[in-house]
Design a protein around this nucleic acid. Structure first.
Lengths: 205, 205
DNA sequence: AAAGTAATCTACTCATAGTAAGCTACTTGT
DNA sequence: ACAAGTAGCTTACTATGAGTAGATTACTTT
């Protein structure tokens, strides 16, 4: 189980290439995302991640501070990607229904195509430590805001509170349906979008 | 920080009452639910829970097997309570819209009145270890089934897949809105219900 | 080539999940 | 009443994994 690297004694050992901080950080993030997504936060060990990168543990702490910090960095990147994807889809739509449709579809496609990032986000409350969770809620707040903002242009008659409520509800519905699709892979992102449209579009137009 | 019990040397020490397994289990569950809900799974320590119960750690393992096992027992109880609450509310409703309304309201009231149980369920994917998560998804499946079943009686024209999709979406929306209400305590359960009804009722009738 | 610095390592500490092995109070058969 | 059995309980351990102190080595700069 233990993969000795024997840096000191080896004859054929490569002398461990040195990389710039930025490069190493990207490399670590890639490995960490994979490990967190497959094993889960708790079962993932810093030693394991370090080994896979081919680096010693203190480097992870040097760059990310803590296990929480490392997860948080992964989450932030994933969340940004998701936000970008949906925001981009919101660009070219002429009416409210079309807009909703495009965003939903973009979301479901994202959860298809970036399975690892999505697995991470889906389990985001994995950690529960107060500092992380509040940070996460802040990030999530952005998504709600974006959604509410988009809806306001379509339905300026609705109250601020109602818009927020709708945004929360729709995002929650999306997340659950994405998890549902993991259990039923035969359901395409178009079908999922259609189901959700059937449920909420009448209430929005 | 360490509260020594000094059982061996004390003069005024109560000799640690012996309880039946069933009673002790209930007592442990109550403490564990509180600790898990407030500190979170990760930060909760078995030693701490044992101390608060006034018991030694091996007893927790004797009765619940592992930390996961203890959390799972808490979750199962909480989930059953929630399921009972909503199922009871489904009893006396004459039409589909009324039914949906009553269930939603029951859910939001539950998350008000059983804050601890709800905090636990809300963070249920806290653990991520594969065995626990699959167990949890199974429990959750019951709720989806119940919801889908209720909707089928109201809308027998919809396909099985669509009913499931609606059930998942509505449950996801509920969960998110309950979390939203934690941030905005001024929003009553009636208001939350009304918002959600406004969003989904048109799509269901 | 000397000095400086950024990347890296080895070798620890400490907290906590989980366990082995035995002790003790209550129950039950005779 | 008392011996035997058992269910509840404890002390004292191991093992793993997060996090850290301090030294070291490879590039960069002058």
């Amino acid at each position: 189980m233990k993969v000795e690297r024997t840096v000191t004694s080896g004859t054929t050992d490569a002398p461990r290439k040195r990389l710039s901080r930025a490069e190493r950080e990207r490399q670590i993030l890639a490995v960490a995302e994979e490990v967190f997504a497959t094993r889960g936060y708790q079962a993932a060990s810093m030693d394991d991640i370090a080994d896979r990168v081919g680096l010693s543990k203190p480097m992870l702490y040097e760059y990310f501070g803590s296990k929480d910090g490392l997860l948080l960095a992964c989450l932030e990147r994933a969340k940004r990607e998701l936000l970008d994807s949906t925001a981009a889809a919101a660009g070219d739509a002429d009416n409210a229904e079309q807009l909703l449709h495009d965003c939903l579809l973009a979301f479901f496609r994202f959860s298809d195509e970036h399975k690892q990032a999505w697995a991470l986000l889906r389990n985001e409350s994995a950690v529960l430590s107060v500092p992380i969770n509040s940070e996460l809620e802040a990030i999530r707040g952005q998504q709600v805001e974006l959604t509410a903002e988009l809806m306001r242009t379509a339905r300026p008659d609705l109250s601020q509170q109602r818009l927020e409520a709708f945004a929360e509800a729709i995002i929650g519905a999306c997340e659950r349906m994405a998890m549902w699709r993991e259990r039923r892979p035969e359901i395409t992102s178009d079908q999922a979008t259609e189901h959700l449209m059937a449920l909420v579009a009448p209430g929005l137009t």
